[in-house]
């Protein structure tokens, strides 16, 4: 049961992020919601590669006959974090420009494009 704990936290983070996306009105909080979803997914990926009492996957100084954690999910997570940084930066810069033009960050008032 305790082994499943990280998965529960990951799914909880994703659900919290989706909650923020659906019910928060401030654009910055929506960006935070996206970051929460992303953190949840990253945590899920890292947890996938964890092996009980495993060591870091570096061959050079590795002691024999000890399990290593999987390196692939770590590479995936690293890539995903970098991509997440780029998307967050882009989203926040759009939020700044929206504030300059609309003088508000309330998502319910930013609806010039409708119908």
């Amino acid at each position: 049961m305790i082994g499943n704990f990280p998965y529960i936290i990951a799914i909880l983070l994703v659900i919290l992020g989706i909650y923020a996306l659906l019910f928060k009105r401030n654009l910055i909080k929506i960006v935070i919601g996206i970051d929460l979803v992303e953190t949840g997914v990253n945590l899920f990926l890292v947890t996938l590669g964890y092996r009980n009492s495993g060591i870091a996957p570096i061959y050079t100084y590795a002691p024999k006959a000890k399990p290593m954690v999987l390196p692939t999910p770590q590479a995936l997570t690293l890539t995903s974090i970098v991509i997440g940084l780029a998307t967050t930066a882009l989203l926040l810069s759009f939020a700044i420009f929206i504030y300059r033009h609309y003088k508000t960050l309330d998502v319910n008032k930013i609806k010039e494009l409708r119908g």
């Binding site: 009105r25 929506i30 319910n108 930013i110 494009l113 409708r114």
Partner: peptide, 8 residues
């Protein structure tokens, strides 16, 4: 509606 939350 054009509101982002509704898109979601």
């Amino acid at each position: 509606t054009g509101v982002l939350s509704d898109y979601f």
